[in-house]
């Protein structure tokens, strides 16, 4: 069912950004150029629809770097399938989003 979901260009950009290794909210904002008031609600919606999932970073890692832990987002399997469908619909998507350092794409 999820593969049939048609994403808006904004949602597809966010999905692509996460897939490219920009795995937290502000990273997605920076790479897409979208404001926080757009990115975060869109990520809530993607998470609600099962296309991405979030997890908190381990406290020990954050403590070691003396900073608060961050919430990271990753694509789910339906999310990858939806992104593939979206990339066919928006062929320039891959060119818009650079791969993050250490990204998984």
């Amino acid at each position: 069912m999820a593969t049939e979901l048609k994403l808006s260009h904004t949602a597809a950009m966010i999905l692509k950004a996460i897939e490219s290794g920009h795995v937290y909210g502000f990273g997605v904002m920076e790479v897409t150029g979208l404001p926080s008031g757009t990115v975060y609600p869109a990520m809530r919606r993607l998470e609600r629809d099962g296309l991405i999932r979030s997890r908190w970073e381990k406290q020990s890692i954050a403590d070691a770097e003396q900073r608060p832990p961050r919430k990271y987002y990753t694509l789910t399997t339906p999310g990858r399938a939806t992104l593939e469908a979206s990339e066919k619909r928006y062929p320039l998507l891959a060119n818009l989003i650079p791969i993050a350092v250490g990204g998984n794409a």
């Binding site: 502000f26 904002m29 900073r67 608060p68």
Partner: peptide, 25 residues
């Protein structure tokens, strides 16, 4: 957490505008 990281890593950004985005969310 995001606010903390922004203040540390991105000094040029408009932090108030970022925080105002919390309301639509």
């Amino acid at each position: 957490s995001e606010l903390w990281h922004i203040r540390r890593d991105s000094p040029g950004i408009n932090v108030t505008a970022f925080c105002m985005g919390a309301f639509p969310d």
